[in-house]
């Protein structure tokens, strides 16, 4: 179907070059399947069942159960993002700077790619099989050492159980993102700092960490949103009873609970607000920290 090469550009009446028409399919898709659905929820959060404007839905979020769900979700996301960043950073730094054999690097990155995508239902199964009531480690500790995890207060189907499970995809994600950033730290910077009299700690505090700060922050925000929206792992691990926001919303959508459908909008709206806030915080801090970038 060869046609003649396009001549001088046509123009839309509004003065918008016709080139923008090329974005039409993408824009239509984004509007229909990302933006409108989100708008629907934002608007719905401020609508009474009869369609009139109201703050009642948001006010209705202020119950003990919902407040605690949000709080647990935020704590969970924050903790897994923080630990994920810290541990992932440690592992990446061990490989990049710690003098480990070069051969480790490739497999580690490949494995991280796999593990960061091994989330959801099967991940829950893997941890149940390992740390659940009859899991590999649980049994091993009980049979070999007489240690009863349950009696020690550990329960996989709890906040800390969830933290440990979520780390399985959070840490690799951090490794994937931060390794290139660590590679970007020039050897000369460390050496220049050293001859100027700086200790290793001073170099990290005054040079390396400030340079890495945007990447660290961005990854943290990403990990936070990642954990905050995760449903499948928690659901497969604990069923509908665990009180975190995505599970509550899941149950709400399924129609299992709560009479007021608009409360679901409010719940979802709250999730958007929190992940958006985390990201705005990130963008704001990043802009502040990147004055020195081109």
């Amino acid at each position: 179907m060869p046609t003649a090469p396009k001549g001088p550009r046509l123009r839309l009446p509004a003065g918008l070059p016709v080139a923008w028409l090329g974005l039409l399919p993408f824009a239509a898709f984004a509007v229909l399947f990302l933006i409108l659905p989100t708008m629907k929820i934002v608007l719905g959060a401020f609508q009474a069942p009869d369609g009139s404007f109201t703050f009642q839905n948001l006010l209705d979020l202020n119950t003990d159960s919902i407040r605690s769900a949000y709080w647990t979700s935020i704590k969970l996301s924050f903790m897994t993002a923080l630990l994920g960043c810290a541990i992932g950073f440690g592992m990446a730094a061990a490989v990049v700077f710690g003098g480990l054999p070069k051969a480790i690097r490739g497999p580690l990155l490949t494995f991280s790619g796999v593990a960061s995508n091994f989330a959801g239902v099967p991940l829950a199964f893997a941890f149940i099989a390992t740390l659940g009531p009859v899991g590999l480690i649980t049994l091993w500790l009980r049979n070999e050492f007489g240690i009863n995890l349950r009696a020690l207060g550990f329960n996989l189907l709890s906040y800390w159980g969830l933290v440990i499970t979520y780390l399985f995809f959070q840490i690799p994600l951090m490794i994937l993102i931060i390794t290139p950033a660590l590679d970007g730290l020039k050897k000369e910077w460390r050496e220049a700092a050293a001859v100027l009299g700086a200790t290793g700690a001073q170099y990290w505090r005054m040079v390396a960490l400030p340079i890495l700060f945007p990447s660290l922050l961005g990854t943290f925000a990403l990990l936070f949103a990642n954990a905050f929206g995760a449903v499948a792992t928690a659901f497969a691990l604990t069923g509908p009873q665990l009180n975190i926001v995505p599970i509550k919303l899941f149950a709400q959508i399924r129609g299992d609970v709560l009479g007021n459908p608009n409360l679901g909008y409010a719940l979802a709206f709250g999730m958007i607000v929190i992940t958006a806030l985390a990201n705005f915080l990130y963008i704001w801090l990043r802009l502040r920290s990147e004055r020195w970038m081109k």
Partner: peptide
């Protein structure tokens, strides 16, 4: 970072990742 610490961090990390895989394999 000393090489020893690096190895320790790396191996502990590996342990964390290998155990659940081992666990599911064994349980299955």
């Amino acid at each position: 970072m000393s090489r020893l610490v690096a190895w320790a961090i790396f191996l502990l990390g590996c342990l964390y990742f290998l155990l659940p895989l081992l666990g599911m394999g064994e349980f299955s």
